[in-house]
Write a protein that binds this DNA or RNA. Structure first.
Lengths: 124, 124
DNA sequence: GTTTGACTTAGAGCGCACTCTAAGTTCTAG
DNA sequence: CTAGAACTTAGAGTGCGCTCTAAGTCAAAC
């Protein structure tokens, strides 16, 4: 249970987000609580903070809007009582992600067909 | 080989795009040629136009930027000589789509894990 | 023939998610 | 102790892809 107390630049490197984006997420209410400060100014991220950012990133990379992520964060902040709300939110999101995956897969199939036609033409 | 000569609103309905977006695409150089005009003002889309918009939509829905779609349209306009360029462009796009699909699928797996944990908690 | 609704244009506006700036403060290496 | 890099803030700016507006023209139904 090491608590690395990472600087923002370390978290940026670890998560692939920019320092700008990390501060933006915090302002947008995406963190569970304001990140600790070392000297009452510079941020120090705990391992839990970094893990949370990691999960946020998964929500974002599946297309969940910032506003919905913020809503989810708020539910987590409110504690155990909101478990079923969180479950529902994630399940709803899951459905949209599956639909999105199906759509992209279908479009990709059409593109693959076109590729096959071009390959046919080129092999001459 | 019916040639329906559709009005823009019909094409909007058929493709799921708005009339605004159809005009925007044309201005952005995404059509193979300016759409025909009935009375020298109102657009009349041919079946080929509609089919082309359909393929555009597949490119877009897999995340290809407008500018790249425009580039692809330009290659088609230049004719047979560009077949291998078009093939290459689509193949490159295909790689990025597959990467994107893999990324979303991985993130979804993490979300599914969370869902499972919440389901466990809720069933009490 | 007239009305009503669809169409036309150029260009402005919007929503999202960052991304950057400026001016100032703090940490760290030498 | 000092220099330079990294950090801080609030707020402005950017890029993308639409989306809408205003002012005017045209078409189809009655």
């Amino acid at each position: 249970m090491t608590d690395a107390r990472l600087a923002i630049s370390d978290v940026a490197e670890a998560t692939g987000l920019s320092t700008h984006t990390l501060r933006y997420y915090e302002r947008a209410g995406l963190m569970l609580a304001p990140v600790d400060r070392a000297t009452s100014t510079h941020r120090r991220y705990s391992d839990a903070d970094v893990a949370w950012v990691g999960f946020l990133t998964k929500l974002r990379s599946t297309g969940m809007p910032i506003a919905v992520v913020a809503e989810y964060a708020e539910l987590v902040r409110r504690g155990e009582a909101t478990t079923s709300d969180r479950l529902e939110l994630l399940q709803r999101h899951r459905i949209t992600v599956l639909a999105q995956l199906a759509d992209v897969t279908q479009s990709l199939a059409a593109i693959d067909k076109k590729i096959a036609i071009y390959q046919e033409k080129v092999s001459e």
